[in-house]
């Protein structure tokens, strides 16, 4: 595909069937992502952001509309779409380096070299032989990131990956991730509910509103890296995201009250 479009989502609709009938999770969503972009998707719970990510990953293929990666419809999960879950989900019986290799063999010298490089990239030197139970939450999540990167995905999908971490570890992990992105230029879609995180990381911020999940707005973010959270321009953008939220929330409240 020309013009650098990597992921093309057109008129995506997703309905969950429950015993009370269908629940609309995503309604007519359109989004184009270019190669090398860092997209954050932000929205309150129930806005379908995790659902969107699972569809792009190929973990959920029961949707209407078209979702194409490099012009090919996504029909199954695979290594071209890396996925980082909220929890690290490491294999507890494997050491760090074997977790990264997973189904690949470390005896292959090419794999061995790549694994060593990635351990350095996610700053885990010295912990190659450690087991998951010996790792902190942030370290375990870095192992998960290295595991996804070893497969050289075309796109890396991150589902609130730092949500369970404390503030210090989280900001450190954000640095690590930006480092990786700047070195590898892997396209990223990062789902979060933290406005600061969304503004700090992304080129473009996609704001979703709930029930059903729809795009409420998309903000471009041209601030140069490394970004200063205290700077006026950062705060300005943060307020822009916030007002996008508040606008919708006020309207929502208005509708809710009208029902009484």
């Amino acid at each position: 595909m020309g013009n650098g479009v990597l992921l093309d989502i057109r008129n995506l609709n997703k309905t969950f069937q429950t015993n009370k009938g269908g629940v609309e999770a995503i309604r007519s969503l359109n989004l184009r992502i270019r190669e090398g972009e860092f997209i954050t998707v932000i929205g309150p719970s129930g806005c379908g952001k995790s659902t969107l990510l699972k569809i792009v990953a190929g973990l959920d293929v029961a949707y209407e509309g078209s979702v194409e990666l490099e012009g090919n419809r996504i029909v199954a999960a695979g290594i071209d779409k890396g996925f980082i879950f909220q929890e690290p989900r490491l294999f507890p019986w494997l050491s760090v380096e074997k977790n990264i290799a997973a189904d690949l063999s470390l005896r292959d010298p090419a794999i061995r070299r790549r694994v060593d490089e990635l351990i350095e990239l996610v700053r885990l030197q010295g912990f190659e032989k450690a087991y998951p139970r010996e790792l902190s939450g942030g370290m375990a999540q870095r192992v998960a990131i290295a595991r996804a990167l070893l497969r050289s995905p075309k796109i890396l999908l991150l589902d609130e990956p730092f949500g369970a971490l404390d503030a210090f570890t989280r900001s450190h992990m954000q640095e690590v991730l930006l480092d990786i992105w700047q070195q590898n230029r892997t396209t990223m879609i990062f789902v979060t509910h933290d406005i600061d995180e969304a503004v700090y990381l992304a080129n473009r911020i996609v704001i979703l509103k709930p029930r059903p999940g729809e795009i409420s707005g998309i903000l471009a973010n041209d601030l140069p890296y490394p970004r200063k959270q205290a700077s006026a321009s950062f705060q300005e953008l943060r307020l822009a995201v916030l007002s996008e939220f508040h606008g919708k929330i006020e309207r929502q409240e208005y509708v809710d009250r009208a029902g009484i």
Partner: peptide, 16 residues
């Protein structure tokens, strides 16, 4: 089941 999901994302073969 969460680890099964991981094995799908990592593209494990049936045997693996």
């Amino acid at each position: 089941n969460k680890l099964f999901e991981v094995s799908r994302v990592l593209g494990f073969s049936r045997f693996k």
